[in-house]
Amino acid sequence: MTTSDAPPLRADARRNRERIVAAARELFAEAGAGVPMEEIARRAQVGVGTLYRRFPERDELVRAVATDYIERLATLTRAAADEEPDAWRALRRLVRRFAEPQLGALSAALKVALPDAFIADPDLSQARLHWIAQVDELVHAAQADGALRPDVGTGDLILLISLLTCHLPELPVHLGRSLPARYLELTLDGLAAPSAAPLPGVPVAASDLGAASEGVTRGAT
């Protein structure tokens, strides 16, 4: 049964589920996805039995947090597109938001816990591709406005965000916290048009990321 096929929950059960997912989201970002289930129940202020009724297996909870994470990215993208005066400012806002430490830590924790889920799980893959399509629309609009360099693809942008939010373990703590924001601003300046020099290779498009998702999904069936 997929998430979309699940029967609707009663109001109290839905609230408990939302509290559990919110608590897990916070704790995964703080301590990784291996945090004890009992600690998640305490943070959510629900009984351990309630947690296990909603999520009998840890993987089910991790997938619920992953779905919530992608939905949050989509919400942030919609808000930026609606509220900023142009696509380039919306993209700059998004890149900065996605690179915030809590979102970056949550993304890293989910990738460790479910390394292939974002492309192998049908629900997660569909949600991810929907979000990529939102970003792709902004990228093309910013390029049409002449604000974003034309030799950058949506895939380039998304992969850059992933690289910028990876905290290298060998770095001193104070550098690991400060460098992502510093390099983020350098990256944003490098993305702006006009560019000083052409990039080697070819742009990574949104369709390249989608093709990778479809290939893994077909292989899993």
Rank of each mutant, 00 (worst) to 15 (best):
L163K: 09
L186G: 02
H167M: 07
A141N: 03
L171M: 13
P150N: 12
W131S: 12
G153P: 06
L184S: 01
L186N: 02
L186T: 04
I158C: 05
Y183H: 12
V139C: 11
T187C: 04
H167A: 09
L175Y: 09
Y183I: 03
G155P: 03
L157F: 08
H167D: 07
Y183V: 03
E185A: 02
I158D: 01
H174M: 10
H140R: 15
T154R: 09
I161K: 02
S162R: 13
V135A: 11
Q134W: 08
D156F: 06
H174S: 15
H140T: 10
E137Y: 02
V173W: 09
L138E: 07
P169Y: 03
Q134G: 15
T165Y: 01
V173C: 05
A133Q: 14
L175G: 00
L175E: 08
G155M: 10
E185S: 01
A144H: 11
L171A: 08
I158R: 01
H140G: 12
Q143G: 02
I132Y: 06
P172I: 06
L186S: 02
C166S: 13
L159W: 05
P180V: 03
V139W: 08
V135G: 02
R182K: 11
G153E: 06
E185N: 00
D151F: 08
S178T: 13
L175D: 04
I132A: 05
Y183L: 13
P150F: 06
A141R: 12
L184C: 08
E137S: 15
L175F: 09
L138Q: 08
R149E: 04
D156W: 04
T154H: 09
L175V: 07
S162F: 13
L184W: 00
I132S: 05
A181F: 01
D145R: 10
P172L: 05
Q143R: 14
I158E: 04
L159R: 11
G146K: 08
V139R: 03
L164D: 02
T165K: 08
S178H: 04
L175A: 10
R182M: 04
I132V: 14
L188W: 01
L175C: 04
C166G: 08
L138G: 06
L163G: 11
I161N: 04
A144G: 10
G153F: 05
L171R: 04
T154L: 09
T187N: 00
L160M: 14
Q134M: 15
D156M: 06
P150R: 14
R177A: 15
Q143S: 12
T154G: 07
S162T: 14
I132Q: 06
L159V: 11
G176Q: 05
D136P: 09
H167P: 02
Q134L: 14
H167F: 07
L159A: 06
P172H: 02
L159Q: 14
L184D: 00
A144T: 10
T187D: 00
R177E: 14
E137W: 10
A141P: 00
A133K: 10
